[in-house]
Design a protein around this nucleic acid. Structure first.
Lengths: 200, 200
DNA sequence: CGCTTTAGTGAGTAATTGCTCACTATCTTA
DNA sequence: TAAGATAGTGAGCAATTACTCACTAAAGCG
């Protein structure tokens, strides 16, 4: 059956969604253009009417991820009453995002693995850099407000923040159970919080 | 030039080393049998005289990793004077291992991504499970010795321990600078330590 | 040394992958 | 509604990949 023609922009958006859905259940590196097309009920050739190359598809996907994740995280932080509350809100927003789109962390990490400097990899890097920047700013504010230890090593604490999330994701990949993240997230964050409060 | 014939066992060991070296500089998923062979100055066909399939090569590699990592970590833990000292020793031993073999974390994470249940993936999982087990045991001992908070959530603390390492690795992949791990590791561990000491 | 076993070669193969293109169906709009 | 623009099809191409095999060189051993 012939696929219904969609406006180019819409088709591109649908493509990005298809990739994100596929990444939830298989190794991003093994997602072929044929698989993407078939998942959206399209022939493979049609994809190349909307993207000049497979790399361009990945680039669009990473753009989607970067935009959405940062926007949600910023919104969550803005509504919080204090720096530490903001950190906690960011943490849980990130966890929510990941459970909604399990493919995302796999793609991010997968991109970072790549040897060649593709545009998608560049986007992944800037996303993580901007993310870290936000965390560091919140930690600084927390220090100023006396909510975290005055002696806290901000850079290390930011690394650990991201690592905390990374550890949860890895654990859930091990267990093959995404919902596990939701259960464990508050418990792990509690230890992190104790760390940045009492670090010397 | 014809490669010097090696005894089968030696050739297999050399192959495993070649893979680990290659994984240090490129995405493990993109390591082809041709690349492995050329890196050890052999023709591709020769590989299949020693391994029945590419999967079998990966299996051998994961065995190598699991054995070495656990052995070193156990040795480090055994020599420590107290549970918390052991945790710290394990942490730094792991960091050392990773800086010596940068390809290892990439392969481990890459294996976990795989959709199909290959033997290599199974090995990666059991390695991480056994690793977590050891961490939990040390944390329990630390609790008994009064070195860490009596209220500590052991499971969450173990997840965070692995995440701490994961965060460091990711950060260094971002920066493209492996040595960075060495510099940051003690700083990040200090915060972790403060966390498990004062968690409530 | 001669003979058997073992390991390496290199030319293949079948399958898969990203990508192209001539053609066709559908949409838009004058 | 006619015509041009837009989007989808499906066959096919070139490159790559894991894997095979008949042959050859080297190692080990009596």
């Amino acid at each position: 059956m012939r696929a219904k023609p969609l406006p180019a922009e819409t088709r591109r958006a649908v493509t990005v969604e298809a990739v994100i859905e596929l990444a939830a259940e298989r190794d991003p590196g093994e997602i072929t253009t044929a698989a993407i097309a078939s998942h959206m009920k399209l022939t493979q050739g049609a994809l190349f009417r909307h993207f000049p190359s497979k790399d361009a598809i990945w680039e669009a996907v990473m753009e989607w991820v970067a935009e959405r994740l940062l926007a949600r995280v910023d919104r969550a932080a803005a509504q919080a009453a204090s720096p530490v509350a903001a950190l906690q809100a960011v943490f849980h927003t990130h966890v929510d995002f990941v459970t909604e789109h399990p493919g995302v962390p796999r793609m991010l990490f997968g991109e970072l693995q790549r040897a060649e400097a593709t545009p998608a990899k560049r986007l992944a890097r800037t996303l993580l850099e901007r993310y870290g920047e936000r965390i560091r700013r919140l930690l600084e504010a927390g220090k100023a407000a006396g909510e975290v230890s005055a002696a806290l090593d901000i850079e290390a604490a930011a690394t650990l923040f991201v690592g905390t999330l990374q550890g949860l994701i890895m654990q859930s990949m091990l267990a093959g159970d995404l919902l596990r993240i939701r259960r464990d997230a508050p418990r792990v964050f509690a230890i992190y919080l104790a760390g940045i409060r009492s670090a010397t």
